[in-house]
């Protein structure tokens, strides 16, 4: 029988559509092209491609063989949910990977009793035919609903095969598009967080009258070094400070770039009439700096932050004494 044999022309056309949508990242475009391809290359004259949204509803996205008026109407109709469709995805309606529900088995209350049908029977305008879209993980991501076969016959397993292949590629494309979108969103978030971290990690703290502390943490690149210098200079003039302590315990690497930024910062601070004390150079960094040939002779350095604070108090003419004495 003719209709139970795979139509190779149809198969080839649908495969080429399937291959072309896999690179498409726009969900709407994917669904629209699939719906149009179904109508153009298969014997079905109408199709709707729906996507399962995170809230469990099926959003109708692609339309083939329908008038603008019908499309508007369909879009305005209440979305059906997967929950409502559960009865449909029953083994007794299964044809291959698809589900065919003859009109006399459907009622508003649900589904009527089982009835054998022959594939030679005629298609009824109220019959339903769905191809679920399965993700690689086996989850339903949407479905293609097709209607109105040109030969007026009920579907067969072989006859549906080309459309099911397209459905599988559609599902993969939808998944692909969603993953790409998710990745892009994550990337944007990551960039924002990087910015936040950068801003957060350069606080200039006033620990006493005329004494500021800047604990430097993490990587210092050109843009951050610039920001740090700006911060320090603004805070010095705001607070009329005399000393800035820059603690670099949390900076993993001091290369010539970081060193030159430090030297420039110290010079700029000096122009404002204040002194800089650098603290927290660990032994490895000290050795490496000497090997690199970086000369910090002009800069006051102290072993750690508390020694730095002592020196700063000294510069500002303050001393710390015990309560008892």
């Amino acid at each position: 029988m003719n209709h139970s044999i795979i139509d190779y022309k149809e198969l080839r056309a649908l495969i080429s559509v399937g291959t072309s949508i896999i690179q498409e990242t726009n969900l709407e475009t994917i669904c629209q092209r699939v719906a149009e391809a179904v109508v153009k290359y298969s014997k079905f004259q109408r199709s709707v491609v729906s996507i399962l949204e995170p809230d469990g509803t099926l959003r109708r996205v692609g339309f083939g063989g329908l008038t603008d008026e019908q499309i508007t109407k369909l879009k305005q109709m209440k979305r059906s949910t997967m929950e409502e469709k559960k009865n449909i995805f029953s083994d007794k309606f299964r044809v291959g990977q698809s589900y065919y529900i003859p009109h006399d088995q459907v009622s508003l209350e649900g589904l009527k009793s089982e009835k054998e049908y022959s594939p030679n029977h005629e298609w009824h305008p109220d019959d339903f035919l769905f191809i679920p879209l399965y993700s690689i993980g086996g989850e339903i991501v949407g479905m293609v609903s097709i209607d109105d076969p040109v030969d007026g016959r009920r579907p067969t397993e072989e006859g549906l095969l080309p459309l099911e292949m397209l459905a599988n590629q559609t599902a993969a494309s939808i998944e692909n598009s969603r993953n790409t979108k998710k990745l892009q969103e994550m990337l944007v978030k990551l960039r924002e967080q990087q910015k936040v971290v950068m801003e957060l990690s350069t606080p200039v703290i006033r620990i006493w009258e005329r004494i500021l502390v800047l604990p430097l943490i993490g990587t210092v690149d050109s843009s951050r070094a610039m920001q740090i210098m700006e911060n320090i200079l603004i805070r010095i003039s705001e607070t009329e400070s005399a000393v800035v302590i820059i603690d670099i315990t949390g900076v993993p690497i001091i290369d010539t770039l970081v060193a030159s930024h430090l030297i420039k910062t110290v010079a700029a601070v000096k122009l404002l009439g204040a002194d800089t004390i650098i603290t927290g150079i660990n032994p490895e960094v000290a050795q490496t700096l000497v090997h690199l040939g970086v000369d910090l002779k002009e800069i006051t350095t102290k072993a750690n932050l508390s020694k730095g604070i002592e020196a700063a108090l000294d510069i500002t003419g303050l001393t710390v004494t015990s309560k008892d004495s």
Partner: peptide, 17 residues
């Protein structure tokens, strides 16, 4: 050791930059 790690990392920082 830690000193060599720091030396290597610093040299890489210079040359990659």
């Amino acid at each position: 050791n830690l000193i060599d790690q720091t030396r290597i990392t610093t040299a890489v920082s210079e040359l990659a930059r």
